[in-house]
Design a protein around this nucleic acid. Sequence first.
DNA 1: TGTACATCAGTGAACGCGCGTTCACTGATGTAC
DNA 2: TGTACATCAGTGAACGCGCGTTCACTGATGTAC
Lengths: 192, 192
Amino acid sequence: MRPERPVRRSREAAARTRRTAVQAASRLFRERGIEAVSVGEVMATLGMTAGGFYRHFDSKEALATEACAEAFAGSALSQDSPDAMLRRYLSPAHRDAPGSGCPLPALASDMRRQSTAVRRAFTKGVRATLARVEQVAPAADAGTRRALLASMVGALAIARAVDDDELSAAMLRDTRDFWTRTLAKAPREPRS
Amino acid sequence: MRPERPVRRSREAAARTRRTAVQAASRLFRERGIEAVSVGEVMATLGMTAGGFYRHFDSKEALATEACAEAFAGSALSQDSPDAMLRRYLSPAHRDAPGSGCPLPALASDMRRQSTAVRRAFTKGVRATLARVEQVAPAADAGTRRALLASMVGALAIARAVDDDELSAAMLRDTRDFWTRTLAKAPREPRS
DNA sequence: TGTACATCAGTGAACGCGCGTTCACTGATGTAC
DNA sequence: TGTACATCAGTGAACGCGCGTTCACTGATGTAC
């Protein structure tokens, strides 16, 4: 059958296609997991068919690598106070919008099945996120910052997994309150 | 073609098959994720073919529901002191053996794509795990216990995802140290 | 306790499906003169 | 600037593959007498 629409695009249009594909993949992968999203589905969100994908990427794995980096770049932690960061990260809004949210709770468990390249991109993102936590809460030592990030990621992951609105909300609220208290009380060492 | 081996098994043998399938699934699902493990693969670990699966279960989903419950039943938190629990949960050994470990970091992100029945079994397991944390650390209030569980789950998930041994070990160690310190210092309220 | 028959646990082939990837083809875009 | 040609972004059909599930069949197990 003959193609239904004109085919070759200008260079800028092609570059735009590539960029948009990475962005769409970054969103879809976070929403549903890397393996659960097909190449065809990513291209369909751009109004394209799966075949054209391979003009831009060697494989789905290459897309996953770029989408992973893009996800970290596009969803950096807020630069506000620790309180504001916690309120935003551990909010129902963030829980309910994984596609535009932090890649850590969304993709962490996918990493076990990914190639070295994808895992490397993810690891780089984890380090960047830890650096962001340092900017937001410079008073906490490195160990406390890692425990804080672990809490945020775990709380969001559990809040998303659980089939009970109250338990889900409690995981977010209690984790947020605990850290707000902890970071206020002991910026570097106990105060009173 | 004619079957190569005798077919019908005794009732006990059949019951054993069912039980073993659930156990194998519970391990495999935690190791690689529910969707990444096929029904045929589960049955192959029992030396059986995929066809026989449906004498015991309505669907893969039914197996996932039972395997999820089984995973929580078989991997309960240790009953020791908070210190011992943290040491065990946040150990490289636990990180490297997801198949026999806590289902929370292993399966949490799979839940988004699972049916209500599976999610319910998972949620029940989360509540049971929180109850275990209460037994281990009765001095901490409910909110702190939820923050603690979130930390443990997040730290293990990140430690497994990351492609860097040092960062992986640091996530475990620092989260463990933070909570050992925190639970020792303030069993119910600040001490000194 | 023995015998005749029904049951059903498990086999292995087959099903329809969606996946990642390849490929011949099209025709607008880009380039060489 | 205009023309002739090469390039290549995207189409849509096709590929081999593995999946979950179904099904006709087998023969040891379980049951009725």
